[in-house]
Amino acid sequence: MALSTHTTTTGFLLPSIHSAPPFFTQQPNPTTQSIASEQWIRLILSYARHRRLFTLRVEDAETAGNDWDEVLRNERINRRVLPSYLSAIIASMAAKNVAAYEPPKQNRSALLYWRLPEEWAEVLHEWAISTGQLNTILTFYDITDPPIESPLTNIPLPLLRKAITILAKTNRAQLIGVADGEGVRFFAGSK
């Protein structure tokens, strides 16, 4: 019964509740279940942040051998999250606006907002300023795969587009159509 935290091979500190077998079972009692999913969401988001993972699929619970193994399975207590339970967790994340189904209109896979789009927008703008790329046109590829690693490396395009849209609302960025895709131009930011 004495539950303890555990550090995974990737250096992530799992909470003690991850060692409790009931954590992996969907609880019929709504009060209990709300607490459980709260902990799950927190665990998933912090792990995603730790591993810089952006998507979570229901399939991740079905088979072993993917990025989410350390969270969705606990070999030490012989428990795993059932796909149905993971699907329910994702649904509750989408409802709490900490994830969004991506692509939309399905519920098998979701984009995780371990930073909200507004936060990403700020990150993106700061990155543009810090690298001196204001007023120049950048392709999405330049942002997601810059020569120097940035917080935005590998950011999924839908999330990037959302962040740019938010910046555009405050006139700090402009979405431009270019010949081979889309581009963006950042501005200094004026209210």
Partner: peptide
């Protein structure tokens, strides 16, 4: 008791290997 939140369940269906150990 579960409805009152006194206990919670650990379903053997969530076992990784076999029906359980």
């Amino acid at each position: 008791v579960e409805t009152d939140g006194g206990v919670c369940r650990d379903d053997a269906g969530c076992f990784i290997t076999g029906g359980g150990v």
